[in-house]
Design a protein around this nucleic acid. Structure first.
Lengths: 146, 146
DNA sequence: GCTAACCGTAACTGTGTATGTTACGGTTAG
DNA sequence: CTAACCGTAACATACACAGTTACGGTTAGC
């Protein structure tokens, strides 16, 4: 599959936003948390805004904010956003090959089923689930800082 | 996942070999069927030989031959061969980020479960299953050629 | 209004991975 | 001896994505 890190990063951003509800987090802060560039974060945020999960605010004290219940965002939703095109690419076999048809048919069907099974597992976890643990970590971290 | 076509191509090769048991198919013929270069096929064959599924024969009238029952090769096996490294890559978040730990933990666990579910579906189909349909296609194709 | 802190987006680079291609040495049958 | 094979290395090519820079637009506070 992929050497694609978008899924974990998108999840990380959403969890960050979910542990400080109603608060605006700047792309610079999120970039530090995810350990990347603010522009990369803003690119990701554009996707989340497009889904209607996040609102952004320009100007001083601006940033991004979660505008839906994190319980309503499953990892399946995030996964689909991250891997917009098909998970598996099919090769285009020679038309003249007599067995190409059945091979392609089987592969398509089986991969479809497999992807469905994969997404069914992802659907069982929501951003809120992860947020609970993350909030606990955050609290412990802040206590240690005192 | 990936823009990786290795899984379908490996499957195609195995099905081709399974419909003409005990017969040697040259990489040139397989290349025509899959619509690629013979060297690419030979690279793939090297993987299959490494698994012990295929034997190759150099020289005139040489080629590749299936040496195991196609019923014993599931698409899960082929999939693992095609996607040798982990299906999903994780990003390495900043150590200082207090919530990175729980995010990574959840992602790792959930993706592990998801991959398991995916492979469970793939395990239900074997090369022999596809070979049955492919053989029928081949027969029909040869009848039309008369 | 001016300034500084923000976002949005475009453009470019760098990099990693996979396929396509060529080439060459080694092996086998006739 | 030759032609049909494989195995493997050494490229070139393509593509997606992260990283980076830059610039225009927006907002809050002085």
């Amino acid at each position: 599959m992929a050497q694609c890190t978008r899924f974990p990063v998108l999840t990380h951003i959403l969890v960050c936003l979910s542990v400080v509800p109603q608060e605006y987090l700047s792309s610079a802060m999120l970039a530090k948390s995810v350990d990347t560039n603010p522009a990369v974060i803003r690119r990701m945020l554009a996707l989340l805004v497009g889904e209607g999960w996040v609102q952004t605010q320009a100007g001083v004290h601006g940033g991004a904010r979660l505008v839906v219940d994190p319980q309503t965002i499953s990892l399946r939703d995030v996964f689909r956003l991250a891997e917009h095109d098909t998970l598996f690419a099919l090769h285009a076999p020679q038309k003249k090959c007599p067995i190409a048809g059945s091979v392609k048919e089987w592969i398509t069907r089986v991969l479809g089923d497999a992807e469905e099974a994969l997404e069914a597992v992802l659907a069982q976890t929501t951003i809120a689930d992860i947020g609970v643990d993350a909030a606990a970590d955050l609290e412990q971290w802040m206590a240690q800082r005192k």
